[in-house]
């Protein structure tokens, strides 16, 4: 199964998004939170992201959802520090994680299909016109 990692500046935000997404896909998605700077402060940390990627991976690869700024940079750096095949989905972090959680539990899911479904969340509207 494709693993998922949520990287946010806030430890609480990352865990909360994982909690919401874990309800999807029959509750079987492999999803890890990597929030905060590792010292209880707001920030992101490459070592923490590496650990989450390696925990989420079962050999099929990992899709990472990020919030902003250093979350992207530290995730790219984490990719250089691990052998796990992992990619960033360019998607809104909450909605993208929900979509990815659903797709990742499909028997036909691939790294590309999970990224695509996460990125489909960019078109979400919350109110009807």
């Amino acid at each position: 199964m494709i693993g998922l990692v949520v990287v946010s500046h806030s430890e609480k935000a990352a865990e909360g998004i994982c909690d919401i997404a874990a309800q999807m896909g029959g509750g079987s998605a492999r999803i890890e939170a990597a929030g905060g700077d590792g010292e209880g402060e707001i920030g992101t940390n490459a070592n923490r992201i590496v650990d989450a990627i390696e925990t989420a991976d079962d050999g099929d690869g990992v899709v990472v959802l990020v919030d902003l700024g250093s979350a992207v940079m530290n995730t790219e750096l984490a990719f250089e520090m691990t052998d796990v095949e992992a990619v960033i989905a360019d998607a809104p972090v909450l909605e993208g994680t929900l979509n990815a959680a659903v797709e990742s539990t499909s028997s036909k899911a691939t790294l590309d299909s999970v990224v695509d479904s996460a990125e489909d969340a960019r078109d979400y509207h919350k109110l009807n016109d």
């Binding site: 707001i42 920030g43 940390n45 490459a46 070592n47 250093s70 940079m73 530290n74």
Partner: peptide, 9 residues
């Protein structure tokens, strides 16, 4: 390992 913001990467 020790710098949380963008300065780390």
């Amino acid at each position: 390992g020790n710098v949380g913001g963008a300065s780390g990467p």
